[in-house]
Design a protein around this nucleic acid. Structure first.
Length: 440
RNA sequence: GGAGGAGUGGCCGAGCGGUCGAAGGCGGCGGAUUUGAAAUCCGUUGUAGGGGCGACUCUACCGGGGGUUCGAAUCCCUCCUCCUCCGCCA
């Protein structure tokens, strides 16, 4: 969420910044400006009325004879004043409600470093690691490879759960588990993250905190708690959502808290299954396990001092990259342009791994710096040393990595002419010494 | 699912419907004392939003929301959370 004061005092700048990401609803921002003004004048007048009432009420408390006519008359007067206050308060609540709903739907302002552009095509390649593997045989995609090896089963997944699901079997399942362990081990013991295993069902307040709600409700799976199932459209805390990423529960760990500055940065890594409805992506990546409703991911989350955000983003990105390097997977890093960034991000790098069967790089990690955007929604603050006023934290997160897509990349980049797949050296210990997955 | 109990400031904990943003303690900060430290003493110490160049001032907040009242931390309703006991359960 953007700061109301900042937005209303810098309307033109905010409009321009939002336009960079393709958000061009100038009327909405004007509406916000006039509401902000109205809000201030209501507060001023209601406060004055309240002050009058407080003084008068206190005077009444000191009156000895509470049965006197004077007292009765005064009481009538104050009753009218009370009505006025009530009216003012309800108008204030109305105005603030509308302001909040506008603010909750405004995306973050792109950072000055974020390049211009409105689509994926405008992203900027920052670096490339490794070389494209070359094959002297026709490359096959992960669906073919995995199915032939008997480690991926899309047909049975569809039987059980429908399209966009996969069953991992045998060494496929083991590979998935090995990846999870490798990632968590590296991030905890080499990069200093604290490991957490959070709930994957979360309240709407958590989804709001990180920015998934209210705008992207359709992209989440929602669990109804009781027979309200279809009845209630508004989200009043009765429902739970399946997390689309561990970012949600882990970032919300510190919602409503005030952290002491000395504890910063706070860094967490955690594995969760992730659930996405993929509404609006019909027909996109329908084959294979690139885009599925349920996948596994190890996430990295950092909370830091506002001055450190940029450096923290570089660090976080490097941590995610380490995994790809350990696995020997060819990839590149692109910086997202303003229009391609997520709703809450102000600066983002994507890690894109090479998929030979698609002859393209595909996102396997997205590392973002959110500034105080999420922190404001969550009320996550820190206290500057030694005795300063609480200030909003900065939050960052990135996939480290999406396990499913990593598995795809391994199958495709490490495929052999005989249909087997080499297990990356770093994973061999986690695979019980198995170095190669052979066809049955 | 059934029966009870509780939610107050960073923490603990008091609080007859008016003088309560809230006693007291702990913690934090500043100072005195000390060669230094501990101990002791004195002072200070919430958040947010208005107004003012500023000193400052006003308003709101005692789990959330609603109500009663001239006036609510205190009374009523409702929701949420936590705890205890019983049942069920991986």
């Amino acid at each position: 969420m953007l700061d109301l004061r900042h937005v209303s005092e810098n309307l033109a700048d905010v409009k321009a910044a939002l336009a960079r990401r393709g958000f061009a609803d100038a009327d909405l921002l004007d509406r916000l400006g006039s509401l902000a003004e109205e809000r201030r004048s209501i507060i001023t007048s209601v406060d004055a009325l309240r002050q009058r009432r407080n003084e008068a009420s206190q005077a009444m408390g000191r009156v000895v004879d509470k049965k006197s006519e004077e007292f009765q008359a005064k009481r009538e007067q104050l009753r009218a004043l009370g009505e006025q206050i009530k009216q003012g308060e309800s108008r204030q609540a109305e105005v603030e409600g509308e302001l909040e709903s506008i603010l909750l739907n405004l995306p973050n302002l792109p950072h000055a470093d974020t390049p211009d552009g409105l689509s994926e095509a405008d992203n900027v390649e920052r670096r490339v690691w490794g070389d494209k593997p070359s094959f002297e045989f026709g490359v096959r995609d992960h669906v073919e490879i995995g199915t032939a090896l008997g480690i991926l089963d899309f047909e049975r997944a569809a039987k059980i759960s429908g399209s966009r699901f996969v069953v991992l079997k045998g060494l496929g399942s083991r590979l998935n588990r090995a990846l999870m362990q490798l990632m968590l081990d590296v991030h905890t013991s080499e990069h200093g993250y604290e490991e957490v295993w959070p709930p994957v069902l979360v309240k709407d307040s958590a989804m709001r905190g990180t920015g998934q709600l209210p705008k992207f409700a359709r992209e989440a799976f929602r669990i109804a708690k009781d027979e309200d199932w279809e009845a209630e459209a508004d989200l009043q805390g009765h429902d739970l959502f399946l997390v689309p990423t561990a970012e949600v529960p882990i970032t919300n760990l510190h919602a409503g808290e005030i952290i002491s500055e000395a504890q910063l940065p706070l860094t967490y890594t955690g594995y969760t299954a992730c659930f996405r409805s993929e509404a609006g992506s019909y027909g996109k990546d329908t084959r294979g396990m690139i885009r599925v409703h349920q996948f596994d991911k190890v996430e990295l989350v950092r909370f830091c001092h506002p001055d450190r955000g940029d450096a923290e983003l570089d660090k976080l990105t490097t941590h995610a990259e380490t995994i790809l390097q350990r696995l020997g997977l060819h990839y590149r890093v692109v910086q997202l342009c303003a229009g391609d960034m997520g709703f809450a991000a102000q600066k983002s790098y994507d890690l894109e791994v090479w998929l030979p069967a698609q002859n393209t790089y595909r996102e396997i990690s997205s590392c973002s710096w959110f500034g105080d955007f999420q922190a404001r929604r969550m009320k996550a603050r820190f206290r500057p040393e030694p005795k300063g006023k609480p200030q909003l934290l900065h939050t960052l997160n990135g996939s480290g990595l999406a396990i499913g897509r990593t598995l795809v990349a391994i199958l495709e980049q490490n495929q052999q002419s005989d249909g087997s797949v080499n297990v990356p050296e770093a994973l061999v210990p986690y695979m019980g010494g198995i170095e190669r997955i052979l066809p049955p």
